[in-house]
Design a protein around this nucleic acid. Structure first.
Lengths: 123, 123
DNA sequence: ATTATAATGCAAATGCATTTGCATTAGCAA
DNA sequence: TTGCTAATGCAAATGCATTTGCATTATAAT
């Protein structure tokens, strides 16, 4: 049966603490502060399990590549800070669906990626 | 000095005819209809030249990966048709920058990816 | 405690997209 | 035409992110 391991718990803590999308490298580094032997292969294996569980989803960020984020956030978009390199989830949506696409296109979904400076780097 | 080759001319024709972002595979296939010996390495080499020239830019589409599109289009976004798999450039922008990000975030740029059904597949 | 075996750590292996070495082909100046 | 050499085609090589085999470790049922 499935076992509760310290490394999986570490990953869950990482996602709970840093509540924003993260890449494998960043997740690994943060996880190692909790379980110092944490290995990249273990991170990949657990991320896959967590995605299958429905706790996480993968997103493809045009500048950051594959990121993982917690599910259950509702509709939101992503803000990339060019100073600190972090990606934030922004609730809500500034898209006017009428203006988004010309007549004839049937828009079913959309993703918006914002780029700029986050509040803490702007200070 | 730089030479005008039939394969580079073919790529230019492809981009002129299909005026939308395309991936390497698609560019190769379309190019082979013009120059049947066209090789993938040649496509990569010429795409790089064309990007350096400023005729093309690379974009990273969350669902389609790396695509190449002609420059000089002005601000626009991308529509992916789930039926035909093509990506279209949509002029204009439906983003309300006020609603896009909460107070404190300084938004400098954005990219919008729409997903759905294109006019010709909707018929 | 003991034990079965799921999960880990490590390194090697994969699967991609993309690049490169080299012999051959083909622009283009003379 | 001829000759120089940039550009091509082909296949092998790279560079990544991600996966996998296997010996070892450690969870949890007994």
């Amino acid at each position: 049966m499935k076992r509760r391991t310290s490394q999986r718990a570490a990953l869950e803590m990482v996602f709970q603490k840093e509540d924003r999308p993260m890449g494998v490298e960043e997740i690994l580094n943060a996880g190692r502060k909790i379980v110092r032997t944490l290995n990249q292969a273990t991170v990949y294996r657990n991320l896959k399990i967590m995605v299958d569980n429905g706790e996480l989803i993968q997103i493809n960020h045009p500048a950051m590549g594959t990121l993982y984020e917690r599910t259950g956030k509702g509709h939101h978009h992503h803000f990339y800070c060019r100073i600190c390199g972090r990606v934030f989830e922004l609730p809500g949506c500034g898209l006017d669906s009428k203006k988004a696409a010309p007549k004839g296109f049937i828009t079913e979904e959309h993703e918006i990626f914002l780029f700029g400076v986050c509040p803490s780097c702007a200070k």
